[in-house]
Design a protein around this nucleic acid. Structure first.
Length: 289
DNA sequence: GCGCAGGGGGTCG
DNA sequence: CGACCCCCTGCG
């Protein structure tokens, strides 16, 4: 593990705030200088943007350029995606202008499963706290610049936690869900490798739904934000429901808006880029409008 | 400052 | 369709 640096010059479609605050990740934190530091895999990375250059800096297991290219989805042409989506209508166009630097990260599938089970009926500060406590207790310690960081535990590591242990970390009623899902994955009753090889998105969703604590919303988040990378799925939470109702449906009571109706609308308007549209709209609605 | 009520990236029975 | 655990936030 050696300290490495990687710089991309003249980098558009990469804004730290947009990427890390658009709701896809829980382990990146802003520093006083405006940079962000996070842990993924066995890597600890600091990311900053200065004069349109993005600077990655930290300790990596492997080559930092390859690691960042994969994790930050650097090979995908976001300007092309934004061009296509901007033509859908002025609402989407506006949301894209607001979150022009969003990228969808390639996050670890197992980590996303557990993280989004924890997210159910929960708020972001608490979700982050729970995940950090789990990492500190069951992950590996990584020291960089004299500061201790912790990797997200492997299924084997987390399988050591009892339901009571998890309750002690503040998971509340999610303790059993995380426990059962961890056991299923650790014992390979639920096989992550075969899931990664599956091409049919509907089969992937059906399989994810068999896990404890994974309902439709959580399954969609896992599919969109993990390395499964299903950009066509459209996770519907309270914020997305709100923005879709405000923009298109205009029902007096947004809680009564039919989920099927939103899914249909999203598919018709955004096609196989629905997940990306969701991110722009979500970020726009939560942070801005 | 501190104490307390309210609510939250849904899922399950 | 109601309950669900508990940290975080905001107000008194």
């Amino acid at each position: 593990m050696k300290e490495q640096k990687y710089i991309i010059e003249n980098c558009d479609s990469f804004e730290l705030k947009h990427i890390f605050d658009c709701g896809q990740c829980f382990r990146w934190n802003e520093n006083k200088d405006g940079s962000y530091t996070g842990v993924f895999g066995k890597n600890v990375l600091n990311v900053n943007k200065e004069n349109n250059n993005v600077i990655f800096y930290g300790v990596c297991k492997g080559n930092i350029q390859e690691i960042c290219t994969d994790y930050f989805d650097l090979k995908r042409d976001y300007s092309e995606i934004k061009d296509i989506l901007s033509k859908v209508d002025d609402h989407v166009k506006k949301s894209i202008e607001y979150g022009k630097g969003i990228r969808i990260l390639n996050q670890d599938l197992w980590e996303m499963i557990i993280s989004f089970i924890i997210s159910a009926n929960n708020n972001i500060p608490r979700i982050k706290g729970i995940i950090e406590r789990i990492c500190k207790k069951y992950g590996d310690k990584i020291v960089w610049n004299g500061i201790e960081y912790y990797s997200f535990p492997t299924p084997k590591q987390l399988s050591q936690a009892s339901i009571e242990d998890l309750r002690g970390l503040g998971l509340g009623f999610r303790d059993i869900r995380v426990y059962k899902t961890t056991q299923k994955i650790y014992t390979k009753e639920f096989d992550l490798d075969s899931l990664k090889k599956e091409e049919n998105s509907n089969i992937i969703r059906e399989k994810l739904l068999t896990l404890d604590g994974v309902g439709p919303k959580v399954a969609d988040c896992i599919m969109l934000f993990s390395s499964l990378k299903r950009l066509e799925v459209f996770p519907i939470d309270v914020w997305v429901r709100r923005v879709m109702n405000d923009l298109y449906i205009k029902n007096e009571d947004e809680t009564k808006v039919n989920k099927k109706q939103i899914e249909k609308l999203a598919h018709e308007k955004y096609g196989d880029l629905a997940g990306l549209a969701q991110q722009y709209l979500f970020y726009w609605k939560r942070e801005g409008a």
